[in-house]
Computed example of a mutant assay.
Amino acid sequence: MTAKNALNEIKRSLDRYVGEKILLRANGGRRKTIERTGVLEETYPSVFVIKLDQENSFKRVSYSYADILTETVELMVCNDDGHVRLTYSQGILEA
């Protein structure tokens, strides 16, 4: 599977979770991990946008689908059963 197809597949998979509460873990550099919660607001052709909860200083953050592919960003969907981690493996974004 080519990289472009992989990124398109990640986008299509994330489309299902638009409007869902998300826990985001991202590499903040220098061994820092940023953990924030918010709502997956929109998916665009190259990036996705998360509207953060009120306690954060930023209102929205965006990341590229390549960040999921390279595991720079981890997403977890918050549902009634707890958190479900979304991981990309073998051409499929899995919950």
Score class of each variant (00 low, 15 high):
Lys21Ala: 06
Arg31Trp: 02
Arg30Tyr: 09
Arg31Leu: 05
Tyr17Phe: 07
Gly38Ala: 03
Gly38Trp: 01
Asn8Trp: 06
Asp80Cys: 08
Leu93Ala: 06
Leu93Asn: 11
Lys51Leu: 05
Tyr65Ile: 02
Leu23Glu: 00
Arg31Lys: 11
Lys32Thr: 09
Arg60Ser: 12
Glu9Pro: 03
Asp81Trp: 11
Leu69Trp: 06
Asn5Phe: 09
Ser62Glu: 15
Arg36Tyr: 00
Val18Ile: 10
Leu7Gly: 04
Glu71Asp: 14
Asp67Ile: 00
Lys32Tyr: 04
Thr37Gly: 04
Arg85Tyr: 08
Asn27Trp: 11
Ser57Val: 12
Lys32Phe: 03
Ile10Gln: 02
Thr72His: 12
Ala95Gln: 14
Lys4Trp: 02
Leu93Trp: 08
Val18Met: 00
Lys21Thr: 06
Ser13Ala: 06
Lys59Phe: 10
Gly38Ser: 07
Phe58Met: 15
Leu7Arg: 10
Leu7Asp: 04
Arg12Tyr: 08
Gln54Glu: 13
Thr87Phe: 13
Arg31Thr: 00
Arg60His: 07
Glu71Thr: 06
Asn79Ala: 12
Arg36Glu: 14
Ala6Asp: 09
Leu75Ala: 09
Val84Tyr: 07
Arg36Gly: 02
Ala26Gln: 05
Gly28Lys: 00
Gly38Cys: 04
Asn79Glu: 12
Gly82Phe: 01
Ile68Leu: 15
Glu42Trp: 01
Asn27Gly: 10
Leu93Ser: 06
Tyr63Ser: 07
Ala3Asp: 10
Leu24Gly: 05
Thr2Gly: 15
Asn27Glu: 00
Phe48Asp: 05
Ser13Cys: 07
Leu86Arg: 09
Thr37Leu: 05
Leu86Ile: 08
Glu9Ser: 12
Asp67Pro: 01
Met76Thr: 03
Thr70Met: 09
Ala95Ser: 14
Glu9Trp: 02
Thr2Ser: 15
Ile22Cys: 08
Ser46Trp: 03
Leu93Pro: 06
Ala3Asn: 10
Lys51Gln: 05
Asn79Pro: 01
Val61Ser: 07
Arg25Pro: 00
Asp15Pro: 01
Gly28Leu: 07
Glu94Met: 14
Glu42Tyr: 03
Val39Leu: 02
Ala95Met: 13
Gly82Leu: 08
Ala26Val: 09
Ala95Val: 11
Glu94His: 15
Ala26Asn: 09
Glu55Arg: 11
Leu69Thr: 01
Lys51Trp: 01
Ile68Asn: 02
Ala66Trp: 04
Asp81Ile: 09
Glu41Arg: 08
Phe48Glu: 03
Val73Tyr: 01
Thr2Asn: 15
Thr43Val: 12
Tyr44Thr: 09
Val49Ser: 05
Lys11Thr: 02
Thr33Leu: 13
Glu9Asn: 13
Thr2Arg: 15
Lys59Ala: 12
Met76Ser: 14
Glu94Leu: 14
Leu14Asp: 01
Asp67Gly: 07
Ile22Gly: 03
Tyr44Val: 03
Glu74Thr: 10
Thr72Glu: 10
Asn27Tyr: 05
Val73His: 01
Leu40Lys: 02
Leu93Lys: 07
Arg16Thr: 03
Ser13Pro: 00
Asp81Gly: 14
Arg30His: 13
Thr43Cys: 15
Asp80Val: 06
Leu23Asp: 04
Arg12Pro: 00
Met76Pro: 00
Arg36Ala: 10
Lys59Thr: 11
Ile34Glu: 04
Glu55Phe: 12
Asn56Met: 10
Asn8Cys: 02
Leu23Phe: 07
Val49Asp: 04
Val73Phe: 01
